[in-house]
């Protein structure tokens, strides 16, 4: 069993009404033509990192992102554009979930291992990420545009401490204010 301490979080589901203004303040300017999904992701990731108190993500940390439907809105727009012409280049880029990884890396002035996993559950994402992350831990996010949008992020560091009564995690318990640790076992993730 691997234990992770939750060192920071952003639980924006849905995000606050002024999340775009908050994002613009964090970036120093309004983001330009990166798409709503990527903006949501940046808002959550940067808020989470700020909550952790870390000025920057360590280079050997893992950045892992998941989503139920990802860039489906931008993809629909591109398919519409392609009925009688090529897509707009920047709109096409918005269909690529990995663009968010590059945007985050640039904003955090960070270079390291990052990935996007499509579908599944946050628990499955955590299981996969935990096998790949080292002592610097990970920044793990789950971002979707449906139902008003959600941007759920955790800054996790491996630790020795274990909680009293870990319970099998649902997405709700993983991304709750009550959880202080996450436990990854062979068959799934647990929260405590």
């Amino acid at each position: 069993m691997t234990t992770f301490a939750i060192q920071g979080r952003c639980l924006a589901a849905p995000p606050p009404l002024d999340w775009r203004e908050q994002l613009a303040r964090m970036l120093g300017a309004k983001p330009r033509r990166i798409g709503n999904w990527a903006e949501l992701g940046m808002y959550g990731a940067l808020s989470c990192l700020a909550d952790s108190g870390e000025g920057e993500l360590p280079p050997d940390a893992l950045l892992m992102l998941g989503s139920q439907r990802g860039t489906y809105v931008s993809t629909g727009q591109v398919l519409e554009q392609m009925r009688d012409d090529l897509p707009m280049p920047l709109t096409f880029l918005q269909t690529q979930p990995s663009q968010l990884l590059a945007l985050l890396a640039a904003q955090m002035r960070w270079r390291g291992h990052a990935g996007f996993v499509a579908g599944g559950t946050p628990q499955a994402l955590l299981q996969l990420a935990s096998a790949q992350c080292g002592r610097a831990g990970m920044l793990l996010g789950w971002v979707d545009e449906m139902d008003g949008g959600s941007s759920l992020w955790l800054r996790l560091r491996p630790c020795e401490v274990s909680g009293d009564k870990p319970v099998v995690a649902s997405a709700e318990s993983m991304f709750s204010l009550d959880a202080t640790h996450l436990y990854v076992v062979g068959s799934g993730a647990q929260a405590g």
Binding site: S67, Q68, R69, G70, Y72, T75, G76, Q96, P97, S98, L101, A114, G115, F116, V117, A118, G119, G120, A124, L128
Partner: peptide, 27 residues
């Protein structure tokens, strides 16, 4: 329809896969 999970489920069904399935997209 564009649906990540439906895509994963479809391929898993084609292969009669019973183990864990992850879909990785880093372009």
């Amino acid at each position: 329809q564009m649906d990540y999970q439906a895509f994963a489920d479809k391929i898993a069904a084609w292969l009669d896969w019973s183990g864990r399935v992850h879909v990785v997209n880093t372009a």
